[in-house]
Design a protein around this nucleic acid. Structure first.
Lengths: 359, 359
DNA sequence: CCTGGCACTCTGCCTGCCGGAGTGCCAGAT
DNA sequence: ATCTGGCACTCCGGCAGGCAGAGTGCCAGG
């Protein structure tokens, strides 16, 4: 699937086109102009239209030569003879790597983002607002992952007795996430044991990163009377299970209606995308491929999942403080406004991080 | 919007067509055949094709006369002169009201449903499985509402001290739903007060239907020392707020990819539907219009929301025991297999009810 | 190395044309 | 009174041809 290299290879270009400098500045400018125009108009762009709109300082004929060169190197492509050119995945790659600047949000936009996110009342609401905001800003499909359990720490563990042998285990993390789980104990559980267990759990695990919790509690049963150890072990087992279920990482979606603006050849493009969006697993893997800190852009075939071969994914990690606890991003057609999208994604990620840090 | 009457009006028919019996059995049979064929083929159905496939015992010419009558009364319609007929919303209405039987699931299907739903581990999982199942069975968009707080009862209320003045309030209902909320108390809260409050809350509210809880707890502050009443009131206020937020009823969706099988005139039909699906409010209102016990079918323009004017919604309540705690349904094109869809919806609702009752 | 000019190609659109499907109506049969 | 076969009519969909427009590649000259 991933047949497009992530970086440019000027070496090969030299080899096949011994004309001198293989990608001089003007050619890059032409590519940039093509990408920009195509993104704007959705139509193949020809040499004449290009010089008219971009004051390149040369004639259409010259541009044609440059275009021929760019095509030979695989950056652009003709849908049919004697139509304009459209960028290839490789062309977009070069564009985002070398030709585009992330477009910063305007300050009214930033205020609006901040204001909108600040209204949130709890974690669910933060995520819900974030995803809607992102969809609206980029006019594309937005995806936000809930802050993962892996990077969180324990704020509190609570045990609630429901029936003599049934206990509800509630785990609260520093990111505000709450997980609950029913525990069926082997026998009736005494009040004092429960209180003791609760206290010890919090004393040992409180404040710790979740992955460390099992280690910290490993020998906890030893601190109890032999008769109570079965109960303690059962509770611990359930707790560890909950921790281990990073699989159950949740994801929120918004903006699927924007898919209708996708292109002309409708059902064909949109169907696999809708299918992908329904599969949490696919989305999680998609976001999983995001480098933690830096913004990641995957263009067309660079996406491992086949159904997304004609889409690009822009994603980035976000988090309270400096380390990222989860990821978010948008999915759109390969012909999308990369600078703008990247700007929006970056800004939103930054502000969600702040909001999380504050709460 | 809702310009289609919900019931047939034979009276008017007599008036405009004094030919004798206005809707005799054969005409109804013709309508039924048209609906069935159109649902199957997606193409306007003509008189000749009809007699060939349905052994009506009469010639195409006769059927044509019947069709003319049906058209005059608004049950069917011609896309253009000299094309076949397609049913109107009114035609579908008559079909589901008088001509169609709900198609029961086969017993392997029932087993499969049951088996699939039984694997669920908690409430979220039940809802998630239900919605996927429904989408798959009907090959349409499925919607499932979480069991509402209104009809639930309190299983347990827990208070967890996070910081001296911050308390986490956790509400657990008999349907397995867990709501948590942070409470900022006016001052530090003592351990004993908290324990006392917890005990009293559960004693007075435990087992009660949520709407009754405020009444039952109204005078709770009076049972505490004056110094503690501010804290108690704050906690109560948050609790009541949580209860009142029935607005925050959640909904789960699946099967949006099935929208691609909607029709030929794509983007136009699908866009408003996708938009509607993103608005929880719209969906909630949609399900809200479902009669509690009986299955509701809203066809085309009968839907209040404009974007869903070319879709039909089949919905029904489900619940543990005999009363319904929430609703579920599917959304599909008006030309859908009503008997099959209704059968699937009814079966799934029934089994979810059972699963909920068991757990 | 750039430029203007020219021939060429391909798409998109419009037109006219035809066959097929389906209807509505009517006169005759039952 | 009701059904039926026949017939003329309408309209869609597909197909071929023609035409304008856009865009290219190439070449010779600046």
């Amino acid at each position: 699937m991933v047949d497009e290299p992530r970086s440019v290879e000027p070496a090969r270009a030299v080899e096949t086109r011994p004309v001198g400098r293989p990608l001089d500045d003007r050619r890059l400018a032409v590519l940039r102009a093509i990408v920009q125009d195509y993104v704007g108009t959705e139509e193949p762009v020809g040499s004449k239209a290009l010089v008219e709109r971009h004051s390149l300082g040369v004639s259409p004929a010259t541009v044609r030569n440059d275009m021929a060169a760019l095509e030979e190197e695989g950056f652009i492509q003709q849908p049919h003879t004697s139509a304009g050119r459209i960028p290839t995945d490789k062309g977009y790659r070069l564009f985002v790597d070398r030709l585009a600047e992330v477009k910063p949000m305007s300050s009214p936009e930033r205020r609006a983002i901040r204001h909108f996110l600040e209204g949130a009342v709890d974690l669910d609401d933060v995520v819900a607002r974030t995803v809607r905001l992102l969809a609206q800003l980029t006019r594309q499909v937005a995806v936000v992952q809930y802050p993962s359990l892996t990077r969180s720490t324990v704020r509190h563990i609570e045990l609630v007795q429901l029936t003599p042998a049934k206990v509800m285990l509630v785990l609260i993390t520093n990111t505000g996430r709450v997980e609950q789980r029913l525990v069926d104990c082997p026998g009736a559980v005494g009040d004092t044991v429960l209180a003791d267990l609760r206290a010890k759990l919090n004393a040992r695990a409180g404040g710790r990163p979740l992955p460390e919790v099992p280690v910290a509690l490993e020998d906890l049963p030893a601190a109890f009377e032999p008769a109570e150890r079965a109960t303690v072990s059962t509770v611990l087992a359930t707790l560890f299970e909950t921790l281990a279920e990073q699989n159950e990482e949740r994801i929120m979606l918004a903006g699927t209606a924007n898919l209708t603006r996708f292109g002309h050849d409708f059902p064909l493009t949109i169907q696999p995308v809708l299918e992908a969006l329904e599969e949490q697993v696919v989305l999680l893997r998609l976001l999983g491929e995001t480098a933690d800190a830096a913004m990641t852009v995957r263009i067309g075939h660079e996406n491992a999942y086949e159904g997304l071969n004609s889409t690009s994914v822009v994603s980035v990690g976000y988090g309270s403080g400096d380390q990222s606890v989860a990821k978010l991003g948008v999915i759109g057609p390969t012909r999308m406004d990369y600078p703008g999208t990247m700007g929006a994604v970056r800004a939103v990620a930054r502000y969600v991080g702040q909001i999380l840090a504050e709460s």
